[in-house]
Design a binder for these strands. Structure first.
Lengths: 182, 182
DNA sequence: GGCTCCATGTAAGGAGTTACATGATTCA
DNA sequence: TGAATCATGTAACTCCTTACATGGAGCC
């Protein structure tokens, strides 16, 4: 890895999973992304496997073949320099992080005026339904809580819940502001 | 555009800007993205210009050269089928929209355990400072409120504010949960 | 034996980032 | 006249998406 260069969000997240839950297979890493209730992680093989390949090239993870398994299975573990890279990635937070992220619902709300009033109301209803379903999901305890750091995981999960709760309150206000029925 | 295919988020947002603020130049569209307080819109020329090119190919926008301007300046406007495409893009909301989006702060919090306690505290302080700065910015009235639909714009801005407020409350809770000083 | 899951990857194509390139207009 | 801003674009590179491809392990 070039000096001074930072890990991408995907690389950082993958390295974090390997650090906190290793030894784990690449397949297992991918399952974590697929089961994540947070949307936006695609977990496509064409993204995960090359990202792991890069982390191995940088020397941030080690790959150990599993004896007695005829599959090309390898257990991944974070190296010392991998843990150091994870620390740098976390600490070198950018100024723009902390602000509101791009949100497909919010983006669409800006242009609700292009819709007839009836469709505006059903859009907000659908968005609220989705948010309520997502909240129920986000409140489920993790199926596999094995991690080096369960406290921080709980803290992050609370963040997702509070985020969705805020969205639900906001959508109710939008209905008021646009004089739409509930 | 292939039948049944949806606009990407960037294409939808660009079309929305052109619909609500047109006639406007491509340059002007780009300024809107650059000045947006929402992070995640990069507004790079290599993304915006090709996106506008695609919208023109689909017939969703018209481009009118400005008489008396020696620059290659063209004013963009949404066509009828453009407005229709914008409506479809808004209404065909996906199930996953409504859940929590990927958030770089939240992703990092999951792995705070890799940091020594002191660095955990300063990470959360930095994140809180960033969020508070973002909140002040998000509360500023828009410099250029000319739009077809100021009410919806206000509603969307309120969403960004409430999002950041929820993040600040969450970060305070994270400090409590991890027994870190304020 | 067959189904599901475990397990790893590649190839083509599309979209975004960064950097570069060019030139006109406006205002002090 | 010089600087800032308006204005549009391209090229190389990287990364992600979608689809395809392959095969072993475990269980009924």
């Amino acid at each position: 890895m070039a000096k001074g260069q930072q890990l991408t969000e995907l690389e950082g997240a993958v390295l974090g999973i390997i650090w906190s839950r290793g030894p784990i297979t690449a397949y297992g890493v991918r399952q974590r992304f697929m089961r994540s209730t947070t949307r936006g992680w695609s977990a496509s093989t064409g993204a995960i496997y090359p990202a792991i390949e890069r982390l191995a090239e940088y020397g941030f993870i080690s790959r150990t073949p599993q004896a007695g398994d005829g599959r090309a299975s390898r257990k991944l573990q974070a190296t010392k320099s991998g843990a150091e890279a994870l620390r740098s990635w976390i600490v070198e937070i950018q100024d723009w992080m902390g602000g509101a992220m791009v949100d497909p619902i919010r983006t669409r709300v800006i242009y609700l005026g292009v819709l007839p009033a009836k469709d505006r109301a059903s859009f907000l209803q659908a968005a609220t339904r989705n948010a309520e379903a997502a909240l129920i999901e986000a409140r489920q305890p993790p199926l596999d809580p094995q991690t080096r750091d369960p406290k921080s995981l709980s803290a992050a999960m609370l963040g997702a819940q509070m985020d969705i709760e805020a969205r639900i309150r906001w959508l109710a206000k939008v209905r008021e502001m646009l004089d739409l029925p509930e």
